[in-house]
Design a binder for these strands. Structure first.
Length: 394
DNA sequence: TCTGGGGTCCTAGGACCC
DNA sequence: TCTGGGGTCCTAGGACCC
């Protein structure tokens, strides 16, 4: 089937958080709107195209955004709402094909080869998806269609906003080579600077650089990868459903923390939040990491591998406090962020080895705590030091 | 105008083992 | 007595993505 040569679709929702908010707020249509942190340290999480016209983009400090466009409407994020909208989006995508790989809440790859009997070409599939998202959910999306994942992603980028771009196989390099190299997946600020030093501005320039030179300057893996991409080659297949490798919680404080006492209090709160997330995901983990960012933005991490996988808040707190906290200078500098993460995850249903000093009852208790938390909110139950402090509600 | 929160992957050094 | 080489695990940091 000649018409299905380009069988990878990349679907990317346009200004997703903003558009979800606009479904309920007709008054905000056509206006510069951003979703993001409203506090003094907030950043832009999503910007409407009207806001982007002012030079506002994602990850920009909110104070900067307001300065560029004083009339911009700033909405605080409601991640539950976006999660629900995301599920609606993915239900529609999966109604076309089960081969859907999610990249984030608002982005996915689809392998549509299986639809060749139902559609004359992949462009028809892309148009069908955009229509359904628009009609059923009132959400705009852009679609890129190409021979592989990374070209499809570049195509959707080129289609934005609210468009569709099909890159035929025999036009891949003509499409790719004039693009600025910064657009490539994996070329961020640092790599871009290195490439500039090599005289590389476009993907075409990159293709001319010998692979060995790239490896020398960018590292083995990145060099090989970028060389492949520069020639339009990407052999990664669309893989539905992947398992999380780590789960983390972190918080940047409105005002810097000082001293061991306050850090321990926050650590306890984080341990409870992380425990909750692990349980919801049905996993336990062994590699616990504590992250601290000081006011001067220097960021340190210290980690420990636990003997037994756990998802119990008390275990997380104690392990972090006893093994990791002492490795940081807590009184030397003010602290702006504390984070805790768990990796080396295993399914909680996997057979557990019960530690001698942690009887099975702890699991039962933790389950009960989690049950109450799900029902009545995260502030309803927890260690005595935290319960009843309304400031700590999430 | 200082820089969110949640992730993934890669690199590099040291420990440890054969 | 002067020092191999490979593999794996652990830890820390950093680049990058949305």
């Amino acid at each position: 089937m000649e018409a299905f040569t380009e069988s990878v679709l990349h679907v990317d929702m346009d200004a997703f958080f903003v558009e979800v908010e606009r479904r309920e707020r007709v008054d905000l249509r056509g206006r510069p709107v951003v979703v993001g942190g409203t506090g003094r340290r907030g950043v832009v999480a999503a910007a409407s195209y009207e806001a982007r016209a002012y030079g506002i983009y994602s990850a920009m400090p909110m104070v900067h955004a307001r300065r560029l466009c004083p009339s911009v409407v700033v909405l605080p994020p409601d991640h539950h709402k976006y999660r629900a909208a995301s599920e609606q989006v993915f239900r529609i995508l999966r109604s076309f094909t089960p081969v859907v790989e999610s990249l984030s809440v608002d982005e996915a790859f689809l392998d549509v080869r299986g639809l060749r009997r139902h559609y004359s070409d992949p462009v028809g599939v892309g148009m069908g998806i955009r229509d359904r998202l628009r009609q059923d959910l009132e959400l705009p999306a852009s679609v890129g269609i190409a021979v592989n994942k990374f070209l499809a992603k570049l195509a959707s980028e080129a289609a934005k906003p609210d468009g569709l771009r099909h890159v035929p196989a025999n036009e891949s390099l003509a499409f790719l080579h004039p693009l600025p190299v910064r657009l490539l997946w994996g070329v961020g600020e640092a790599t871009h600077a290195s490439l500039e030093r090599l005289g590389v501005a476009t993907v075409g320039d990159l293709a001319e650089v010998p692979e060995a030179t790239l490896k020398k300057h960018l590292g083995e893996a990145a060099g090989a990868h970028l060389h492949e991409l520069s020639w339009g080659r990407d052999s990664r297949s669309v893989v539905p459903e992947s398992v999380a490798k780590s789960i983390s919680v972190e918080e940047t404080y409105e005002h810097d923390l000082r001293g061991k006492e306050s850090v321990e209090g926050e650590l306890l709160r984080h341990a409870n939040r992380l425990s909750s997330r692990l349980r919801t995901a049905g996993v336990t983990g062994r590699a616990l990491t504590l992250k601290i960012r000081y006011a001067d933005f220097t960021t340190l991490t210290r980690s420990v591998t636990l003997e037994t996988p756990t998802d119990v808040a008390r275990d997380l707190y104690r392990a972090a406090r006893d093994n990791l906290l002492g490795k940081f200078a807590l009184d030397a500098k003010p602290i702006r962020l504390i984070g805790v993460s768990m990796a080396r995850l295993t399914s909680a249903n996997a057979p557990r080895q019960l530690a001698v000093d942690r009887p099975a009852k702890w699991d039962d208790l933790a389950d009960a705590v989690e049950h109450v938390r799900q029902r009545y909110g995260s502030g309803s139950i927890g260690p005595a030091r935290l319960v009843g402090d309304p400031e700590r509600e999430e």
